[in-house]
């Protein structure tokens, strides 16, 4: 079989541990600070690295769209072992919605002529969970979402896809878009050698014009949804918090009696 190109979509996001801040006027997430590799995508990177046989010439290529030429998340994934990255970064992309992002990513992915495209089931900060399928539709590719395992069998992939009641065994010819859930594999920590090597790995930066896309399809002008308000949700009234002094179980029994569950 010919060498395989595995694309991993990786999103670079504000550190979820830091408190999120919303832009007062647009109500969108503030993404001006430093961005990191979305933890959700580290599983996709690991899966791709496990599936790619580098001896046979297989390559793992990262594709990301991010503002301000951000590469720190890409460097993390390169340090894990990916070969190179395509970054789409362009001032006109500010305010792009999920479908616009899918159009951009699809155009970038097309250049790599991938056999397999891996993305996460959903991102940590956006969690629309529809973007990879939009990419598949734009590229005319099959898609298998919610994969808990992927294996390659000749020119097909075999996927165990999560379902309501268990899982389905799904087979698809390549090229195909597959989304992985967290927990499918254990993402490796970049080694010191990997971190050093990542510094010199190629990161090609593309603009919207490079991709042959019209600027009106992306950014705020292409976005057809807006946030009109963000307000505090009704909060639950404070309950009773007690330190267990051997009576914790009895307290719970009394509470369950009170609400007539027992």
């Amino acid at each position: 079989m010919q060498a395989m190109n595995v694309v991993v979509c990786v999103k670079q996001i504000p550190d979820p541990a830091a408190p999120a801040s919303l832009d007062e006027s647009t109500h969108t997430l503030d993404r001006t600070g430093k961005l990191i590799l979305d933890d959700s995508d580290s599983y996709g990177v690991e899966m791709a690295l496990q599936l790619a046989d580098t001896e046979a010439g297989d390559e793992v290529v990262l594709v990301s769209m991010a503002p301000n030429g951000e590469v720190s998340g890409l460097r993390t994934a390169l340090a894990m072992g990916a070969a190179k990255a395509l970054l789409v970064s362009d001032p006109v992309l500010a305010g792009t919605d999920a479908l616009g992002t899918a159009k951009v990513l699809a155009a970038a992915i097309r250049r790599v002529e991938p056999d397999l495209v891996i993305a996460a089931t959903e991102s940590t900060d956006g969690y629309t969970g529809t973007l990879p399928v939009q990419v598949a539709e734009i590229l005319g590719l099959p898609s298998v979402t919610f994969a808990k395992s992927i294996s390659i069998d000749g020119s097909n992939v075999k996927v165990e896809r999560q379902t309501e009641a268990g899982y389905d065994e799904v087979e698809s010819p390549m090229p195909v878009v597959v989304t992985v859930t967290a927990g499918v594999v254990e993402p490796r920590y970049p080694s010191f050698k990997g971190i050093m090597a990542a510094k010199s790995k190629p990161v090609e930066t593309l603009t919207v014009a490079d991709l042959g896309l019209d600027a009106s399809e992306v950014g705020v002008s292409g976005s057809r949804q807006e946030i009109v308000d963000v307000s505090e949700a009704e909060s639950r009234s404070g309950g009773e918090i007690v330190v267990d002094e051997g009576d914790g179980a009895d307290r719970i029994v009394a509470f369950l009696e009170q609400i007539k569950v027992i």
Binding site: A98, L99, V133, Q134
Partner: peptide, 21 residues
């Protein structure tokens, strides 16, 4: 699982955004 797949594909087909969650 399947609802999200239908929504994503349809959104790209009709060129309409989708609001999730």
């Amino acid at each position: 699982y399947d609802g999200r797949d239908v929504a994503g594909r349809l959104s790209a087909k009709l060129d309409r955004p989708v609001l999730t969650n």
